[in-house]
Each structure stands twice: as structure tokens, then as C-alpha cells.
Amino acid sequence: MATLLLDRITVALRSYELELSLEVGSTLALVGPSGAGKTTVLRAVAGLVRPRAGRIAVDDDVWFDGPRGVDVPAERRRIGLVFQEYALFPHMTVRQNIEYARKHGADDYLERFRIAHLERARPAQLSGGEKQRVALARALAREPQVLLLDEPLSALDAHTKTAVRAELHDLLSTLDIPVLLVTHDFEDAAALADTVGVIVDGKLRQTGTPSGLVAQPADSFVASFTGANLLHGDAEPGPESTRVRLDDGSVVATADPAHGRVVLAVYPWDVTVASEPPHDSALNVIHAPVRSIAELGNRVRIAIGPVTAEITAESLRRLALVAGRPAFATFKATGTRVVAEHEDR
């Protein structure tokens, strides 16, 4: 498989400078809050934005080289870019959209993406999922060396999103070209990509496998972005574990050594919920009113005091929890991680 290489790419953005190096082998997802410069990275690779410096290459094909003055025009870079809102040509049919990318052999793509029955439809008549299939078919019809996806799931409603995500995952696993996708949703990134890079303020904060980022978040931002609860407090080494006095006065234990001001990351799936005081090995028990209960499909997120726990809908029914009534949230000392505080902009 080819490798897409971004070497110290610099692009001036409105309030800061985007600056990063990336090596994309199979599928890499850039995640970050909106305005972090994710889309700009894709536009730079596509040749729609000219970086101030750096180098972009796919194996031996150099598309951009600042010092050498190489800047291959967008239409001569073999990339497939799927835009966030798909950017299908509204005045062309589905077939014409695909034929725009390749004169012959559009039929293969119409069939492969199950849009043959829509070939005469105009984009305005398509559903979100169908539009995405057309956009993917059109991007791949060019036989690109690299596939770029800009927020591939954000234009879809929650109902279709899950199905499309699985579909997209299957498609990406069959491709033998580097795929670079950007999203603001860590879950989407984790579901679609082997490698995830967290980008903040135009800089790459941490890169790793989705489970690697969760296991060892580089700082509180990455931890919170990957879904962790952040607990702020003062740490004091104890005889067996570190004691952390949280800002709300409660004390929790962590297995990580720490001293002074710290941030603890606790993932929702490491938190168990009970309506009665628990008797188990978990050292940390938070007894507080249930702040909110949010159902996400078959999973439920329950906020109890400073932490959010994730349990199944079935457990929720068994526990008979009600918002406003007290409950117990417990987590093990080994289920906490001390992370470096991220300075917010």
C-alpha cells in the first residue's frame, strides 16, 4: 500500500497556524474540535489550499514541495475528496455526477455502491445515505491514490448514522489506498480508523490507536475528547495509593503516583452504578443525586455528581434510577489515570 506523507505542512489560519506532519498508511482519522484546522489539512492535500511551507507526497509523487516550488494543481493530483455536504453537482443526475469523474465504466461504480436504480435521479431527490454513496462512488471513480473524507457522518441524522458508519467501515477496509478522514467525533474516528490523531489549535496533540489513546491520553484534553470524565483536585501520596481531594471535597484514590494539583481521567465504562451502597473491591464511591439520564440507543449515560457512567438500558431498568434521587457511582483506583492539565486557549 502507498503512503501519504505530510511533512511539516504550515498553513496560516485565521487565528493561528496549522502545522503538522503525518504519515498515512491505511486509515487515519484526524479528530478535534471544530476550528482546529482539520478540513484545511484535507484541502491542502487536495491542492485547494496552498500551504506556506512543507511537503506533501504519495510515495514518489510529490504534490507539494515548498522549498522546491512544486505545487501540482488540484486537478492533476489523483485524490478522491468526499466533502462534508457531499458537493454533488445539483444540475447533473447521479450517473452524470459519476461520469464527470470517469468517462467510461460508470456502471461498475453505480452497481458497487448500490445506486444503479438512482442513476437518473438528481442529488436533491436523494436521502443523506444515498448522497454519501454517490459522493463516495464519484470520488473513487477517479481511481485516486488517496481518499480524503471530510466529516463523513456529520451530515446524517442519528438514525442513519449507525448504519452508514458500519457500511463505510466495510468499504474502507476493502480499499488499498491511504485514507485520511477528519471528524469532530472520537467515536466515529475510533470506529472507522486504525490510527487516530487528535488535533487542537492546528497542532497534532497525540497520535495512536483508538484504544491506545484511551489507555494513555497525553493530557486532559485528549482524555476528555476521547470521552473521559475529568476530576480536578489535589493529590497526596498515601501508603498504598494516591489520595486525591477533589474540588467538591470528596476524596478518591488512584493507582497512579501523583503529587499536588492533578486531573484524573475516568472513563464512563469504568464506572459502575448502584442504587444501594456497594460492597466490592472498588475504592472510589461517589454518593450523589442523579443529574441526568440520557439514552443513546441501547446505552445510557447517567451523570452522578461529578462523574458520568455508561450502562446498558437493561441495567437502568433494573436499577430503577430517577433523576434527582441519590445513587452510587463506583470505580476502581486502577480505573483512573492522572493526566497532564491542558491549557485552554
Binding site: R43, A46, G47, L48, P73, A74, E75, R76, R77, R78, I79, G80, L81, F83, E85, A87, L88, F89, P90, Y100, A101, R138, A139, R142
Partner: peptide
């Protein structure tokens, strides 16, 4: 929509084809 012109470029169409099509 500027995105459509951009999409045209990424699909291999030069400035002239992008303009006319």
C-alpha cells in the same frame, strides 16, 4: 457554491471545464 467548483477540480477537471460544466 464554491464547494462545487472545488469538487470539480478534485475530480480532475481544469479551470476551463470547471467553468463551463
Amino acid at each position: 457554491d464554491a464547494q462545487l467548483a472545488a469538487a470539480s477540480r478534485t475530480l480532475g477537471a481544469g479551470p476551463a471545464r470547471t467553468f463551463f460544466r
